[in-house]
Design a protein around this nucleic acid. Structure first.
Lengths: 234, 234
DNA sequence: TCAAAAGTGTTCAAAATACACCCATGA
DNA sequence: TCATGGGTGTATTTTGAACACTTTTGA
């Protein structure tokens, strides 16, 4: 009696499966990427995305969760699958496919010591060094995904602190889309969705008058989504 | 001297990697899916997407190309990656991850004998039987992708014959989005993109007056894309 | 000649865009 | 008091949805 599919598959070849995370952050008006310098062979000293092999009993997305936790110290990082890279010759000599993960983190929250301990650093997107293997392409594809998503979902909030001002949000969108937006119109648009709760507090760091803080209203967002609302930012 | 990454990875576990194709077609005003009835164990007799294991020296996308060619007889099927399914327990007993592929075919072009020879059949989307493993979820995700893409790219042309009429195109969009569209407004919108070449020929199969055939203008589409044009259908 | 689908034109409302202008405040 | 970013209001243009109307032709 055959009890496992494995017995039927036993003649089929097997490969290594890895997952690599493209981790975006936003700081100082700039989009940044978390990359790290390899400290062990192979490719010691080369810049790379953070990643890991998927363990034999581990879900692929759990492998990503594990990596993200290990490097940033954060438990609830927003991430979702990007593309899977499966060229036969992508990892010189070894057959290894990689499931890329698109992750967004609040740059104010991560654990600085932990990232440094792992040799990980934030790089401005336009100052990235060359990355190992096909990781450059992974970044290109993830950036396209970021733009696509940011246009139709209020995804940008994952990149800002819990409390943020409208001008901060605008500056994030300007960084994502690389163009200037009209402050008045941006404000009207983003408030029209009614997914921002205004707080009483102000941020005075960038103007004398100060800008009110807002908080993302997850409740209301879910409700609007379910009602079939179309979030079209820009 | 170590010459291959494999030697560094040798302690890491390996898994089977498969690719499964979600093949959409459009016929008779209805969206259809190409699925097949398994003729060998495991899961003999169950309905399944068409797929295959990825060979050790084969690119993942070439595996998909191979499968599509084998079943439909077509060489240039439009396809792109959907999601990768990597739960540890998804394929009872075996560790096997699957890269799902989203494919669109012109239902008038495929090789009927070949599909039948392989036990493959077209099913209306709303009459699909239960599929094996997590293939139901793959279909759900691919359908979401179809809707997303169809909204922003003139992807629908992949599902129609080379020559098609505006009313045919409208009926395709009505099938994808499950709602009725205004013929006048739809026509204006779709022609406004200027990616359709009007032919002199008419299709008289669905009206006495006949509707002009059009052909998709790939040249112009590319040009418009490069100029940053935003194709927003609906 | 008339029903039915193809195709055009008009109207009204909503949404995007541009931009003028007021507000608050610390230097 | 004034320069500066925050925030509001308004005029103009563009786009979208609704729908009336005209054309064509085989039954």
């Amino acid at each position: 009696m055959i009890s496992s599919a494995e017995e039927y598959y036993k003649d089929e070849s097997k490969m290594h499966v890895a997952t690599d995370c493209i981790v975006f952050g936003f700081d100082d008006g700039e989009l940044k990427l978390l990359i790290f310098k390899r400290r062990v062979a192979p490719k010691k000293g080369a810049w790379s995305l953070i990643g890991s092999f998927v363990q034999i009993n581990e879900d692929v997305d759990n492998a990503a969760r594990r990596v993200l936790k290990e490097i940033t110290g954060l438990d609830n990082v927003f991430f979702e699958q990007s593309l899977t890279y499966g060229k036969a010759d992508r990892d010189d000599g070894a057959r290894c496919i990689s499931v890329a993960q698109f992750a967004l983190i609040r740059i104010d929250e991560y654990d600085r010591e932990l990232t440094e301990k792992h040799g990980a650093y934030w790089y401005k997107l336009d100052e990235l060094p060359d990355l190992v293997l096909d990781h450059d392409q992974m970044v290109i594809d993830a950036l396209a995904k970021l733009r696509r998503k940011a246009k139709h979902q209020p995804i940008g909030f994952e990149l800002l602190p819990e409390k943020f001002t409208i001008p901060q949000l605008q500056s994030l969108y300007e960084a994502i889309f690389q163009r200037n937006l009209d402050p008045g119109n941006f404000r009207k648009k983003v408030l029209s969705f009614k997914v921002l709760k205004k707080l009483d507090e102000k941020d005075k760091s960038s103007s004398k008058r100060g800008a009110y803080y807002y908080r993302f209203d997850h409740e209301n967002y879910k409700k609007l989504l379910e009602s079939g609302y179309n979030f079209e930012i820009l």
